[in-house]
Design a protein around this nucleic acid. Structure first.
Lengths: 176, 176
DNA sequence: TAGTGCATGTAATGCGTTACATGATTTC
DNA sequence: GAAATCATGTAACGCATTACATGCACTA
């Protein structure tokens, strides 16, 4: 079965109870966007494809005059998902402009370079607030979904500390 | 000035002493690939474009019969780089298939789900070895380049510990 | 002399995002 | 009555990767 980046997301979220394409997009935006993105331009065509291949079953379920199509996993779909979960990890793509700036920071006066570390620290703090807000209203999510949210929170906490540690170290090693 | 993802990489690496397109590709692969990727298909067209726009200056410098063109920053190029360093951080894209699997791990029997955490832990360990090997031969790199390498190493160390901590916690909370 | 590293480049392909279009329903 | 949310979908665009093509130079 042909797959793209959105395939496991669609099947996984339907497996966790998402019903419409809109649900899936919300799930991505509210829970997964910090480690896996997805757009309508991927989701809707993928839903039609997966239904045609028999991995999901769709049914029209309008709300009044507003169209709505809901989906659930077929046995084949659930099997695909479980097989995928056992597969090898391949994709890890990380693109972090703040690290890229830090990488070239030797081109700046020292104080400006240290300023980049402060900016990075602030970025982690801001992200932390977003994730903590999500955590507050995620009480009854499945265990491992919560675990990944914890990862996001603890990673950003670590990131704040990392910036502070190295700021202290660099300020100590070469005072103005 | 129009820019893509490769623009600051090309200018930054030339600023750090890279001379040819091949040098830049090597720099990306050996030092930056864990947080910013780049391919020949981007680099060579970008070098021509940046030369045409006057941010770099190119000169033919063949080795025997083998063609080679080397570049250096112009004043305009250095200025662009410094301005970019001071700009706002925008891009942070993180795509981690291992986290995505963990996110959906509630679809698996508990022991298999914990197995995903073990796989993740191993992934961090392997990456750690690669980065430590780079660190060994990076003694005289510029300070902030080394700092980013440290980030990679310390992040993966943190990642190993994170997996171990939560494995312990989850094994304790629900013994078979 | 075989293998690795140096060196430049392009074409095709696939992919994902962005922006747009449209409209109903619920909530304040 | 306004604003937010629910809901579906496509077209254009830009971008990056992949694969391919080519060949010299150095080193073991």
């Amino acid at each position: 079965m042909r797959q793209t980046a959105i395939t496991p997301v669609v099947l996984g979220l339907i497996g966790l109870g998402a019903r419409s394409g809109y649900d899936i997009k919300s799930g991505v935006d509210n829970s997964a966007r910090f480690f896996w993105a997805g757009s309508y331009g991927q989701i809707y065509p993928e839903l039609r494809r997966l239904e045609a291949e028999g991995l999901i079953r769709g049914e029209d379920s309008p709300t009044g005059a507003r169209g709505r199509r809901v989906y659930e996993l077929t046995d084949a779909g659930r099997k695909w998902l479980v097989d995928w979960l056992a597969g090898p990890n391949t994709t890890i793509e990380y693109r972090d402009e703040s690290l890229l700036r830090l990488f070239f920071a030797d081109a700046l006066p020292r104080e400006d370079a240290l300023g980049l570390l402060e900016v990075r620290r602030r970025g982690h703090k801001e992200y932390l607030e977003i994730l903590r807000a999500i955590e507050t209203r995620a009480g009854d999510d499945p265990d491992f979904m919560n675990l990944v949210l914890r990862w996001g929170i603890e990673f950003n906490e670590w990131g704040v500390e990392w910036c502070e540690t190295h700021l202290r170290r660099l300020r100590r090693s070469k005072p103005a």
